[in-house]
Design a protein around this nucleic acid. Structure first.
Lengths: 190, 190
DNA sequence: AAAAAACATTGACCTGGATCAAAAAATCAC
DNA sequence: GTGATTTTTTGATCCAGGTCAATGTTTTTT
């Protein structure tokens, strides 16, 4: 099956698995399809699912007390992710997850995810790698926020993630870059 | 020995160890004392050490192309840390580590750190917990940067980490909060 | 304890990006 | 396909926090 093959391929980039471990892991994932704009996790809910995106695009974001959306992370196929803070702590999430396009994902429950971590050492390494990457990603984001202008952040995104710029609306891109939609529009015309 | 007892106490807050494991771990750490302003890691060096701060205060920071310091993290006793991105990847660090006060630390080499992770499951869990915490911390920092004003970030720091505000110079605090020293000075007088 | 260096404060001024408002263009729903 | 909703663009204005410069104050060095 197409989606599960893609999953196998991706997780093997992070850690080394036996065939039977891959079978075991694969069986924990269930296919789900979400229509555009579906909310997979609302704020105040506890995040109990980890996603592999096989087709489409999800994002995590939160809403400020002034009512503005701030996008933390955009997941475009093939990739993985979830509302990590809540997934880890099992406290209510301040983040939302929603689908920016119709998306086909493979989902694993937190219970299964952690069971795998206890029972398959390579899966614990996989988890560790994910955390390392997530950390580095956030670190990089802070670096961009504190050293680059709005325009430079936009140019960096075009350079490093042109697919996202092509497929995602300016409204969402702006919220990802932490600038206003109006500003982004002006940046592009300059 | 005082410092090593403090180390034992701290790591047991993250994971559960046997006595003999603790002995083993403890033996990997060497005591070092750094004078104020000592640079423990310069940018472009590869970070090969992880620190437990038993007394004093270290920080990680980087320098922008305009020559401004940006402080990422302040470690005040008792705590742990290092220039994580380089420590993980073993690529040259863009971050520096230096001592904000005369500090007594226990240091473990990356080689020993990873050997322990392979040989003591509880240490791998410890590492995972650290990564989870580091991730959450960075996430929180981004949230503060994108939702709070300079004044609100300063007030949050006073609220959540008053010790740091007392012991660290305004120059460093400002670079931690991503504001200018002059602005911080004005905030305080308002 | 004096000189030097680093740090903190205060003032005047400037600017990148936000805000508010309204029109134009694209997308969606039936 | 057409009306409704959402997104994008453009204009006018504002302001938090930066910059530059000068003066105090504290810390370090000798």
């Amino acid at each position: 099956m197409e989606a599960k093959d893609n999953l196998r391929q991706l997780i093997q980039m992070f850690s080394t698995f036996e065939e039977n471990e891959l079978d075991r892991i694969e069986n924990c994932f269930k296919t789900r399809i979400f229509k555009k704009n579906t909310v997979l996790l609302a704020s105040d809910e506890v995040c109990k699912t980890f996603y592999f995106i096989n087709r489409g695009c999800l994002r995590t974001y939160f809403i400020t007390k002034e009512g503005h959306e701030k996008t933390r992370y955009i997941m475009m196929e093939p990739s993985i992710g979830t509302a990590l803070t809540s997934f880890i702590s099992q406290r209510p999430s301040f983040e939302f997850i929603d689908a920016l396009e119709e998306s086909e994902v493979l989902a694993i429950s937190r219970t299964d995810f952690y069971r795998l971590a206890d029972e398959i050492p390579a899966w614990k390494n996989f988890y560790l790698k994910i955390m390392e990457m997530a950390y580095s990603f956030q670190n990089r984001k802070i670096e961009s926020l504190v050293t680059l202008s709005a325009k430079e952040r936009y140019e960096q995104l075009i350079r490093e993630n042109p697919k996202v710029v092509q497929r995602v609306s300016n409204k969402i891109l702006a919220s990802y870059l932490d600038i206003k939609q109006e500003t982004l529009s002006r940046l592009k015309s300059r």
